[in-house]
Design a protein around this nucleic acid. Structure first.
Length: 224
DNA sequence: GCGACAG
DNA sequence: ATCTTGTCGC
């Protein structure tokens, strides 16, 4: 039995004009669920990333054991990039190719780490949150730069963090994963709560700025 | 109206 | 995201 059966045939269409895509995000955001995820219940974690070059999108999903962080499965997909990059609508550009990679998985991870935002988004639907609805699984977003919301610069030490708020609501945190290194933007996706997301990210980031699973996915997507 | 704007 | 070598600093 393939993992494809665990992904709904269709949650919604992808080729939507910006205005309709935004309306869809507003509708889908109400489906996001908060759920705690203890580190003890995690045995496999996946890193997700997409690289784009010459109008060709290359997706990579890498599954690693937790907490050992050993790669046990690598799946990739490639297809023409048919949607433009529009801030706030990244999922409509990278979602389709990611699904092709997800459908190949034989090892089902307990949680997915995305290179991009989770709920730190104008409509709480960053790529991590959005894809979580298709996967119907726990997801976390780890962004490398600012998209929206306000926050104070976190302390300089590894582990220091400050809340990121948007319209009076905290959507995530700006977390320093390495001392004196630019912080990352962490937020829960689907079936995940912020405390659990932060704990998972820190547990997966032993040496570098980005979590090991995301680094692995980035490498796999770039060399495909 | 102006500036900001994941990857 | 991508184009790209060496270089400053912990």
């Amino acid at each position: 039995m393939s993992y494809k059966k665990n992904i709904p045939e269709e949650v919604h269409p992808w080729h939507l004009p910006p205005k309709e895509a935004i309306a869809l995000q507003n509708k889908l955001s109400s489906q996001l669920r908060d759920e705690p995820l203890s580190l003890d219940s995690v045995s496999h974690i996946a890193g997700v990333d997409v690289s784009v070059k010459n109008d060709v999108s290359q997706a990579a999903v890498v599954v690693l054991t937790f907490p050992e962080m050993e790669v046990v499965e690598v799946r990739r997909a490639k297809r023409p990039t048919d949607y433009p990059y529009v801030p706030g609508l990244l999922t409509f550009r990278e979602g389709p190719v990611l699904l092709e990679a997800f459908q190949q998985l034989e090892i089902i991870p307990d949680v997915y780490l995305f290179d991009g935002m989770g709920r730190i988004h104008p409509r709480k639907m960053g790529i991590g949150a959005h894809m979580g609805l298709w996967l119907q699984a726990p997801t976390i977003g780890v962004g490398k730069s600012h998209l929206t919301g306000s926050y104070d610069e976190p302390g300089p030490e590894k582990g220091d963090m400050s809340p990121l708020t948007y319209k009076g609501e905290q959507l995530g945190v700006v977390l320093r994963t390495r001392t004196n290194v630019k912080p990352v933007y962490v937020s829960a996706g689907h079936r995940m709560d912020l405390p659990s997301a932060i704990a998972l990210v820190l547990a997966c980031t032993p040496k570098y700025r980005l979590p090991t699973p995301i680094r692995a996915a980035h490498n796999a997507a770039g060399e495909y």
